[in-house]
């Protein structure tokens, strides 16, 4: 499903150019659960953001379900993203003035899902937040916020779920809960790409990334 070939990406910091990804090659099949591990600054977030079409590499190719992402312009990538990706970010970011169910419903509406509100409630129930739909993000705990983020990521039934360090700021119980939920989603037929620096959370196929290079 995902084929990454000779991927290179660097960033400019002041006068210096830092190579974050150095000729990365990776293949992920449909319905795989891949855990991307590595220390902070190893390139996990950069790799995930390139796979999600948030940015373009300096060199190389990324093919997801037959679509070459490097050949798409920004608008096309955005359109592709709303249909094909469910993204769970590492920081707690829900729209602060929308309730939990509205945050999920927002994604459903963007993907033009019918009965977006009931679908959103279904997804919240799936992540165990049926009674918290009417709460604002600041009324939820960190773990609950991330669960809402997961519900938002699955509401439009994307084939690929990308979770970039979703457990970074959670306690150990919540960390496990989040990864359990991701596993449940994977068992329903999704492809899951999880990035974490926490070795204890790594599941199934583990891909190590160190200094911008893959070590499997």
């Amino acid at each position: 499903m995902i084929r990454i070939t000779n991927l290179k990406k660097s960033y400019k910091y002041g006068d210096n150019r830092v190579e974050v990804l150095k000729k990365v090659n990776l293949e992920i099949k449909d319905n795989e659960f891949v855990t991307l591990t590595g220390p902070s600054g190893s390139g996990k977030t950069t790799l995930l953001s390139l796979v999600a079409g948030l940015d373009l590499p300096d060199e190389g190719s990324i093919i997801v379900d037959g679509i070459e992402l490097t050949e798409l312009d920004e608008n096309s990538r955005a359109l592709w993203r709303r249909k094909s990706i469910g993204y769970v970010p590492q920081f707690f970011f829900l729209i602060p003035y929308l309730t939990a169910v509205e945050n999920v419903e927002l994604m459903a509406r963007l993907a033009k899902i019918k009965d977006s509100k009931s679908k959103a409630m279904e997804c919240l129930e799936l992540v165990g937040l049926k009674d918290k739909g009417n709460k604002f993000p600041h009324e939820l705990s960190g773990g609950e916020i991330q669960r809402v983020a997961i519900a938002r990521a699955i509401v439009h039934d994307p084939p690929l779920i990308i979770a970039d360090e979703p457990t970074a700021f959670l306690d150990s119980e919540n960390k496990r809960n989040i990864v359990d939920i991701l596993e449940r989603i994977w068992k329903e037929g999704k492809t899951v790409l999880l990035a974490t620096h926490d070795q204890f959370l790594a599941r199934h196929r583990i891909v190590k990334i160190l200094d911008g290079k893959i070590e499997e």
């Binding site: 999600a52 608008n75 592709w80 729209i95």
Partner: peptide
């Protein structure tokens, strides 16, 4: 940040 989040979800500029 909110706009960046929306663009991450798939909103166009």
């Amino acid at each position: 940040r909110e706009y960046a989040m929306l663009m991450l979800l798939g909103y166009r500029a």
